[in-house]
Computed example of a mutant assay.
Amino acid sequence: MHHQPLLVVLRHRQPSLLVPQLEQLRDLGVWHTEIAWGPGADWITQCQQLIAGFPELRLGAASICSEAALEAVLEAGFAYGVSPILDSRLLARSAAASFALVPGVMTPTEVNRARSLGCSIVKLFPASTVGLGYWQRLQDPLGAPLPFCIAAGGLKPSDVLPWLEAGVDAVALGASLAAGARGSAAAPSFATDPLRQLLAALPTRP
């Protein structure tokens, strides 16, 4: 994420139906993609097939809120995981499995708690609720260094550059990228032009 500070989050009850979207992301040059955990009986198998079928992408798992979800993600073989919550039990289990789990934080207390638990990366969620500049305002009261911050939740492609300029390290996008009708059985395609323009405008980092 230091090289491309963008993540795309995909969500569907049947992950196997996300193949067209993953193909779009691969062809556009997106590197980091998250697939939300789901309770489906064959979720693990479908995700294993996606991981094997898209070696060019660094696939992670999103929405990890329980030990059952974490165990499914570990079995599926994801490269990393992201949670909307800060749960010390999930972090301990992930550490025992040598698995990178990014916790969700919002308040100064949660940010400091994550830091004390050794989290080098956190997810600011929901970012749209706290607003642009929130992360920067935490710097002086909490003291540097703050963890690497991924802003997520309610953000659009047009928000990415302003949020990066305001001090976060990366931005995650989800539903705002969908171009098709929501609620259908098939996963909606992406509006590729905004995403292509965004990728071209992202800052180049060593």
Rank of each mutant, 00 (worst) to 15 (best):
M1W: 05
Q4D: 13
Q4R: 11
P5Y: 09
H12S: 13
R13G: 15
P15I: 00
P15F: 00
V19Y: 03
Q21T: 15
Q21P: 01
L25F: 01
D27K: 10
E34H: 07
E34P: 06
W37F: 07
G38T: 11
P39F: 08
A41T: 14
D42T: 13
W43C: 01
I44A: 00
T45M: 04
C47A: 12
L50R: 05
I51F: 00
I51W: 05
A52Y: 04
L57A: 08
L59G: 02
A61K: 00
S66L: 06
E67P: 07
E67A: 15
E67T: 14
A68L: 12
A68W: 06
E71M: 06
V73D: 01
V73Y: 06
E75G: 01
E75Y: 01
A76D: 05
A79P: 01
A79K: 03
G81M: 11
G81N: 09
V82A: 06
L86T: 08
L86M: 12
L86W: 12
D87I: 10
R89W: 12
A92L: 14
A92N: 08
R93P: 04
S94H: 00
A96G: 11
A100H: 13
V102R: 08
P103V: 10
T109H: 05
V111K: 08
N112S: 12
N112L: 14
L117K: 00
L117P: 04
S120Y: 08
S120I: 05
V122P: 00
F125K: 07
T129Q: 13
V130A: 05
V130W: 02
L132C: 12
G133K: 00
G133C: 03
Y134R: 07
W135R: 04
Q136S: 13
Q136A: 14
R137M: 13
D140M: 06
G143T: 09
A144T: 13
P147K: 10
C149Q: 00
C149T: 11
A151F: 03
V160M: 06
L161F: 08
P162H: 05
P162M: 03
P162N: 02
W163L: 11
A166F: 08
A166Q: 11
A166H: 07
G167D: 03
V168A: 05
A170F: 09
V171L: 00
V171K: 03
A172E: 09
A175D: 12
A175E: 12
A175R: 10
L177T: 04
A181K: 13
R182A: 15
G183V: 06
A185C: 05
A186Q: 15
P188V: 09
F190A: 07
P194N: 11
L198S: 09
P203Q: 06
